[in-house]
């Protein structure tokens, strides 16, 4: 019995373990002689080249230093809660230290803010907008693709704003998500939240409060919502954005603002 059971166990082990180990080991030696040999050679030929490129790339980087730094605001502006992973987000804990660094670094003379955002957290968006507004260096913003919802105050926060002719901005009321407890208080809170956004936009652009609120509550422009979608030229026409343009116009303006600032600094 003992011998038998021991043998049996061993057999089980022998049957289980080696097959698990041997199969992967056996599999590669079987496949190479059949066909993939050339592919193996190819990778062998390419590998050193890639490595060389990588190494050369590392050592041959030209020491190019830009006096203009660029901040891209993409996807959702993420606030105090982490959004699920399918969202592309811009986090305020990344941007705010970067803004401080841009403000403090003497080598940086100006900042370009590039927006392609669908909106996001009101508080985080306003925080970023206030930081851009308060930056001690010239700032130029450029709306590409879309600068919707909370992207609007961020876009107008800079010294001068540009919008690409094809870019759009959606202006709509601030809505609440999830469960509402205490409806009158919540509505009042939302109203004040909305006022903060409206106030910031009106103060930092050429649009009038009346005009902005009109766009915000317009009916029939959005299929599922109240609000307005404004395309490039219209954003300039209503005074929300300063000028139509893309990268070349934005950098030219930024350089001009930097020069003006340097001249002023020289006089004082």
């Amino acid at each position: 019995m003992y011998y038998n059971s021991g043998f049996f166990n061993k057999k089980i082990h022998a049957a289980n373990l080696p097959t698990k180990v041997q199969n992967p080991k056996q599999a590669p030696p079987i496949t190479p002689p059949v066909a993939p040999k050339p592919s193996k050679r190819k990778t062998k030929n390419i590998k050193p080249e890639i490595e060389a490129i990588k190494e050369l790339g590392e050592s041959n980087i030209p020491t190019y230093k830009s006096n203009i730094h660029c901040m891209t605001i993409i996807g959702q502006v993420e606030g105090h809660t982490i959004l699920p992973p399918q969202n592309k987000t811009t986090k305020y804990e990344h941007l705010i230290p970067q803004l401080v660094a841009v403000d403090q670094n003497p080598d940086i003379e100006g900042m370009l803010v590039i927006l392609n955002t669908v909106g996001g957290d009101v508080e985080a968006g306003l925080a970023i907008a206030e930081m851009i507004k308060g930056l001690s260096k010239p700032t130029v913003s450029l709306v590409l693709g879309g600068g919707h919802s909370i992207g609007v105050p961020i876009a107008v926060a800079s010294n001068y704003s540009f919008i690409a002719p094809t870019a759009t901005m959606t202006i709509h009321p601030v809505r609440l998500t999830g469960l509402v407890i205490g409806v009158p208080a919540t509505l009042d809170y939302l109203e004040r939240m909305q006022d903060r956004v409206v106030q910031f936009v009106v103060e930092n652009s050429n649009i009038t409060e009346e005009n902005f609120r009109e766009l915000m509550f317009k009916m029939g422009d959005l299929s599922r919502d109240i609000g307005t979608v404004i395309v490039g030229k219209d954003a300039v026409k209503c005074g929300l954005i300063d000028e139509l343009g893309t990268i070349s116009e934005a950098t030219a303006k930024l350089k001009q603002l930097i020069e003006e600032k340097n001249l002023q600094g020289g006089i004082h």
Partner: peptide, 25 residues
């Protein structure tokens, strides 16, 4: 108070479940 989102993305899309978190750091 919950965060107030001011976005054009439908809330159902933002908070969609059954999405695998990437192995990102």
């Amino acid at each position: 108070m919950d965060d107030v989102l001011y976005t054009i993305m439908p809330i159902s899309t933002i908070f969609e479940e059954d999405t695998k978190p990437g192995n990102y750091q």
